[in-house]
Amino acid sequence: MKATHRWGAVRGAAWIALLPVVAAAHVLAPGRPLTGALNQRILWELGVPRLLTALLAGAALGVAGYVLQAVLRNPMAAPEFTGVNPGAVLGVLAALTLGVVPADSAVGALLAAVVGGALGGAAFASMRDTANLVVYGLLGSALLAGFTTMLLAYQPGRFGNALRWLIGSVEGRVWEHLSVAWWWIAGWIALAWLSSAVLAVLSPGDDHAASLGLPPVAGRAVALTVAIALTAGAASLAGAIAFVGLVVPHAVRRLRGGVLTATLLGGLTLAGADALAQFAGRALAGTQRLGLPTGVVTALAGAAVLVYIARKEPA
């Protein structure tokens, strides 16, 4: 047993050591030199907030997916498939397009995301079956796109801007956006960590939880609130990022980790994907365009993972 603990510590240290590596890749990805006052200013005002946004949104999605998969007992219960993420993005888009909140208000976007995410999550909370959950989730995303186009019928000029939310991107986030989201996400992750035992007791089943002394309804309410709040936080920062909330919990389970592992892996995954997106965008489009949206990289990776999972499904 002692040995297990020591291995856990070693592995944890290894993962933390990855953090500076990913951060360095992310900073170097745009291919801009790091010297010169202007370049350093750009790095500080754009590059660093972008990296932090990716880490923060990724951590939030990783933990949200971990929580959802545990309480819904479904390996496919990722934020993007349970209606929470599409709902949150729709909330943000509706608020921005209808002018309920100013376009760049961090608090307003967050509130809209929470409302939308809660509505979306409520619609999907009863799903249990793996294949159906995914399909409902994709229908939800299709619906999201449909409603978005309807909203945009009012203001066609905003289409490009809205696209950014639909794809999911951490580009263009500055310090101001992070100010609120930071406290929000850190707070809810802390709560998720404090409820680790609730999640563990809940995951084998309602009867199991009840026999061990946890009222399942109350436990699930806490967990779902945490998941929705975290997803909304991520959506208000980065829009509809797929895949992180699906694959990070799988990795966490393999590593026998918990909420903290999900936080770290989620942040690393999204920051890594964003670095990749910047590299690829630079390679594909030269310097003319601003680069591939992060969401495209994560969505493609997500599709590959789905195919992998489907192929492993027994006949």
Partner: peptide, 13 residues
């Protein structure tokens, strides 16, 4: 079920 998941995945991609 697997075919359905795969279709969904290709669609997403």
């Amino acid at each position: 079920g697997a075919v359905l998941l795969i279709g969904a995945a290709v669609s997403t991609a």
